[in-house]
């Protein structure tokens, strides 16, 4: 009743959630059993940057457009083309509409 049977597999979210919660509890237990000589706010928690001063947190923050730059850079060719397609010009939007209409017309005319 509660899960789904797709005919090829089964998905029961309640069982999954219970398992996940169990895993979280185990992780939490491990965390609690951690080292007792760790002190918050002391020299231990400071980042070590080869002896350099730690920059301000505002400067360390990875901003939105810096995330995944590697992936985007790897796909630069694709992105150059696909962004060129999004011209922002209304006539082009209408052209795409007419183009799709043409393709659908061909397919429907040819298929019996």
């Amino acid at each position: 009743m509660n899960g789904i049977d797709t005919g090829f597999g089964v998905w029961n979210p309640i069982a999954w959630t219970l398992l996940f919660a169990g895993a979280l509890v185990i992780a939490w237990v491990f965390r609690v059993l951690g080292r007792s000589d760790y002190k918050r706010g002391s020299e231990q928690t400071k980042a070590f940057l080869s002896g350099n001063e730690e920059p301000e947190p505002e400067k360390l923050h990875v901003r939105g457009d810096h995330l995944y730059w590697g992936l985007v850079d790897g796909l630069a060719g694709y992105y150059r083309r696909i962004r060129a397609v999004h011209t922002g010009v209304l006539s082009d939007y209408v052209a795409w509409f007419v183009g799709v209409l043409g393709v659908v017309l061909i397919i429907l005319a040819l298929v019996r």
Binding site: A95, V98, G99, L101, G102, L105, I106, A109
Partner: peptide, 13 residues
């Protein structure tokens, strides 16, 4: 290309 597609759609209509 656009003109060709346009003429094609027009012909169908």
């Amino acid at each position: 290309v656009l003109a060709a597609v346009f003429l094609f759609v027009a012909a169908f209509l």
